[in-house]
């Protein structure tokens, strides 16, 4: 679920609940758009937690094969923390939104 300001939604012709493709320099995912006033125009907010393909019967659409939703990691460059080796989590990146 990508949250988009209604101003941007109108500009891009995206309605509530429609499928969108988000593309960043590193990858592309498909998810559902939700128009919400709580997000700054010109930005998209998307929570982590979707796009699992092998995480139990509820998280994946078809276990081991088809994920449910899109994973933010596909959009964010692989940058690892120098000390902990963990990936960046609350990241921002440039993206393009397309209606599918």
């Amino acid at each position: 679920m990508a949250k988009i300001n209604p101003v941007d939604g109108k500009k891009l012709g995206i309605n509530n609940g429609e499928k969108v493709r988000l593309t960043s320099p590193t990858g592309s995912i498909e998810c559902t758009a939700k128009l919400w006033e709580g997000v700054l125009p010109g930005t998209v907010a998307k929570c982590y937690g979707q796009g699992h393909w092998a995480y139990g019967r509820l998280a994946a659409k078809v276990f081991g094969k088809i994920p449910r939703g899109g994973n933010n990691n596909d959009l964010i460059p692989a940058v690892y923390d120098r000390l902990s080796g963990s990936t960046v989590r609350h990241a921002g990146t440039r993206i393009k939104i397309e209606k599918i």
Binding site: N5, V7, E37, G38
Partner: peptide
């Protein structure tokens, strides 16, 4: 309930 339009939004 989310009311108003950006930047005057209340939740």
């Amino acid at each position: 309930e989310t009311s108003g339009t950006f930047p005057n939004v209340r939740y």
